[in-house]
């Protein structure tokens, strides 16, 4: 009897986490679908087959890098250059993963590994803004759902774009381009309301990023420096907040 009750409680707890994960991850789907469809359309126009379009999303799973690669493939750039450019552009995920894995201490490696593989700007941002779930029982299911929704939306949207070809009117796809930025803002604002210093960290990082781009850094390195150096201000700014 007791055992039953306990496992029943655990089940509803798991279910609750899955449900919360889906709700929390939904904005990523909203942001990813139009971007992924656009990627699929452009990749098709660059001469990639549907299989290649889907494979790239499945295996690389990095929006900005995929757009860049499609452009480079279209103009006939070599393999090595594309791969190096991808490394530079995606290196920011190393920094984000370090922060996220530190947040996930206590969660088993068998979970952290797929979460690391599925880390994108968006899945990281959404998860990092919900740090408390990691400490709850079955909290890992919450993160797993966010990551799964993001991944499936990206892959499905890419293939859809590859099948549909050019169907989305230009100004609609342009409007959709603001979706992920709006999501980042929507994630940041509540934290700033709770703690203004967090806003200061973000603004510093924005300025460093803009400065790096101004002096000619590639977008990839600019984001890495903005994040790492901007984040450094947290060493001092977040000092008093530690309990």
């Amino acid at each position: 009897m007791e055992k039953n009750a306990a496992s029943g409680g655990e089940q509803s707890q798991s279910f609750h986490m899955i449900q919360r994960g889906i709700i929390t991850g939904f904005p990523i789907m909203l942001g990813y679908l139009p971007v992924a469809i656009t990627y699929g359309v452009l990749a098709k126009q660059a001469g990639m087959t549907l299989l290649e379009i889907g494979l790239m999303s499945l295996m690389v799973y990095a929006g900005a890098a995929q757009f860049m690669a499609v452009n480079m493939i279209a103009v006939g750039t070599g393999v090595v250059e594309i791969v190096i450019a991808t490394f530079v552009l995606n290196f920011r995920h190393f920094v984000m993963s370090l922060s996220f894995m530190n947040q996930l201490r206590g969660i088993a490696l068998k979970w952290r590994l797929p979460l690391g593989l599925g880390l994108t700007d968006e899945s990281f941002a959404v998860s990092a803004m919900n740090p408390d779930e990691g400490k709850k029982e079955n909290g890992v299911l919450f993160y797993a759902m966010i990551f799964l929704i993001a991944y499936l939306s990206w892959v499905a949207g890419s293939i859809l774009g590859g099948i549909l070809g050019e169907v989305i009117p230009d100004n609609l796809s342009q409007s959709m381009g603001i979706a992920l930025y709006a999501m980042f803002i929507g994630l940041l604002v509540p934290s700033v309301k709770k703690n203004l210093k967090v806003g200061l960290i973000a603004i510093l990082s924005m300025l460093i990023n803009a400065l790096c781009i101004q002096i000619g850094f590639s977008a990839g390195w600019a984001i890495v420096f903005g994040t790492v150096i901007g984040g450094m201000s947290g060493i001092i700014l977040l000092k008093e907040d530690e309990r």
Partner: peptide, 15 residues
């Protein structure tokens, strides 16, 4: 603290 500030810094740089 540095790693804890990374999400906010990353959001800033991404926006």
């Amino acid at each position: 603290r540095w790693l804890g500030a990374i999400p906010y810094a990353a959001l800033g740089a991404l926006i």
